[in-house]
Amino acid sequence: MSFHQGITAKPRPRITPDHQPLWDGFKQHKMMLPFCEDCGKPHLPPGPVCPHCFSDRLDWREVSGRGVVTTWVVVHKAWFPAFAEDIPYNVVQVELEEGPRITASLVGAGDQKLDVGQKVVAVFEPVDEDLTLLRFKPA
């Protein structure tokens, strides 16, 4: 994380080769997961092998983008200067229908109170031509 990036702009994801298909999918407004061709299970965060069976035969497939909120936090401290104007902002963790969990934020809830178990669906928010962020909205 460079100094000027932290001050002037929100942090961007650190996209490793393993993570690239996830972010490419967001750009196309698709939720993609790496499925293991041996044991069949998907996993997140993306890694070079399946953490369930250690196979390296991974296949990225589009999934539903639906899930439930397992937990959330409302951040009141400006850890990143670029987030100062957003305070307080939420971060949610969502368990996808297909199993893996993912971290993002919830939009479009209005005054609706968040709850553990709240059903949500993925939405995609273009930041610029290189980056689209995943968010969730109430389903």
Binding site: P13, H19, V91, T103, S105, L133
Partner: peptide, 13 residues
């Protein structure tokens, strides 16, 4: 090392 996926949402600490 999750910060690469957390930071865009302001998730840290």
């Amino acid at each position: 090392g999750a910060n690469g996926l957390w930071f865009p949402y302001g998730m840290t600490s």
